[in-house]
Design a protein around this nucleic acid. Structure first.
Length: 379
DNA sequence: TCTCCTTTGAAGAGT
DNA sequence: ACTCTTCAAAGGAGA
């Protein structure tokens, strides 16, 4: 299990990862490491400040990507071929450049835009307009600020403090984020960049859809059928009264924290889409998978570290949560659906049975069933 | 409308 | 301890 120590680069969880990577192209990796000269380091430092660098794409990468697309699209040359793929150096270096520029600086977009929410996901490079710009010189890990309660309170007491969670959930919580590094804090005025149009705190549905019980819009909380719910609300801005049963069924789901690769994908997807003019996620993910392997140790380490922080914060916010909570969700949902239709006295199935209709009879839709229930005083 | 595809990594379940 | 399974994201495609 890849685990990063907060201290360092070599003991990171990427080790396992890198072993596999070495197997595939040890020589290439050595070349990479040698190539990571002091000049690169300087570039890295400067580019962390200059985010605009990250969005530039090199012609080399543009030239390299069509090959990747061909491989992805050509079933005869699938990924399993384990080609000497590190020939994608063009891509790799291009990527490297991008990480230098945007891996961290862009990440705040992910988090501040509430990526776990169905409509909130956006990468710094996506065509969706980012709402909050990362400020230069901010620590790379400021992206995780939404987890920090400081940003949602002005003063020592707040309804959003974690102590509140503990009270509500009856779970002991470590005294507030004491082990969360200081860089989780927003710079003064950081929140001020959030425009009212974001509706972070005023949206009437926030508490029921993407909000942690603290009121923190935590990305990991989504409504059961979050997408439709949010879409619907955005369009109409008038919440439709939901049946009680439906409301109960839509208890928010706490999602898994994203792992390193997921974070990487989230950031790079838009770029790959732009470069490859691909939209199919399966193909894009294949490309991203190869690029992930082509990343240098240092570059991957950034994402392992971010993922580790994510897990840490997730654990602090949801002490009792387990990945098991979301296990079998698909099957369970299907089962619930089935139960719903069984328990609904006006379901087509029930009505067919009640009125002796066969399966082919199409007229017995739910609406007509309600009508029938009314007409025939069905219970 | 729902599920599949496709990737990697984390974590739970099962052996 | 080890292997297997599920779920995180994404969005097009097909049932």
């Amino acid at each position: 299990m890849p685990q990063l120590s907060s201290g360092g680069g070599d003991d990171l969880g990427a080790n396992d990862e890198m072993i596999a990577f070495k197997d595939e192209g040890e020589q290439e990796e050595k070349i990479q490491e040698n190539a990571f000269t002091e000049r690169d380091l300087a570039d890295l430092k400067s580019s962390l400040v200059n985010e605009s660098e990250g969005s530039s794409s090199s012609p080399a990468a543009a030239a390299a990507d069509p090959e990747a697309i061909r491989r992805v699209q050509d079933p005869q040359r699938g990924y399993q071929e384990k080609l000497p793929d590190h020939m994608e150096d063009g891509i790799k270096h291009q990527d490297t450049g991008m990480y230098k520029g945007s891996a961290y600086s862009g990440y705040p977009f992910l988090m501040l835009s509430d990526p776990y929410l169905p409509n909130g996901s956006m990468s710094p490079l996506s065509n969706k307009v980012p709402v909050v710009q990362p400020s230069h010189g901010v620590h790379p890990l400021t992206p995780l600020i939404p987890y920090s309660n400081e940003h949602f309170s002005h003063g020592s007491h707040s309804p959003h403090l974690p102590a509140d969670i503990s009270q509500k959930q009856g779970v002991h919580r470590p005294s507030q984020t004491s082990d969360i590094p200081g860089f989780y804090s927003l710079p003064p005025g950081g929140v001020g960049q959030i425009t009212p149009s974001m509706g972070w705190f005023t949206h009437p549905l926030m508490l029921s859809s993407g909000m942690h019980t603290t009121g923190i819009p935590h990305p990991a909380i989504v409504p059961h059928s979050g997408k439709q719910e949010i879409d619907h609300y955005d369009r109409s801005m008038k919440p439709q009264p939901e049946p009680k049963r439906e409301k109960e069924a839509k208890k928010p789901t706490i999602k898994k924290p994203l792992n390193a690769f997921m974070l990487y994908m989230k950031e790079m997807r838009a770029k790959v889409i732009a470069e490859c003019t691909l939209k199919e996620s399966a193909a894009i993910n294949q490309i991203l998978g190869r690029r992930w392997h082509a990343l240098s140790r240092e570059e991957q380490a950034k994402y392992y570290e971010l993922a580790r922080k994510e897990r840490q914060l997730h654990m602090q916010l949801y002490p009792g949560w387990s990945a098991r909570d979301n296990y079998g969700k698909k099957k369970r949902r299907a089962r619930e659906k089935q139960q719903d239709s069984n328990s609904d006295p006006a379901s087509p199935k029930k009505c067919r049975a009640r009125f002796g209709l066969n399966q082919q009879t199409d007229w017995c839709g739910p609406c007509r069933c309600v009508l029938l229930r009314f007409l025939f005083h069905c219970s």
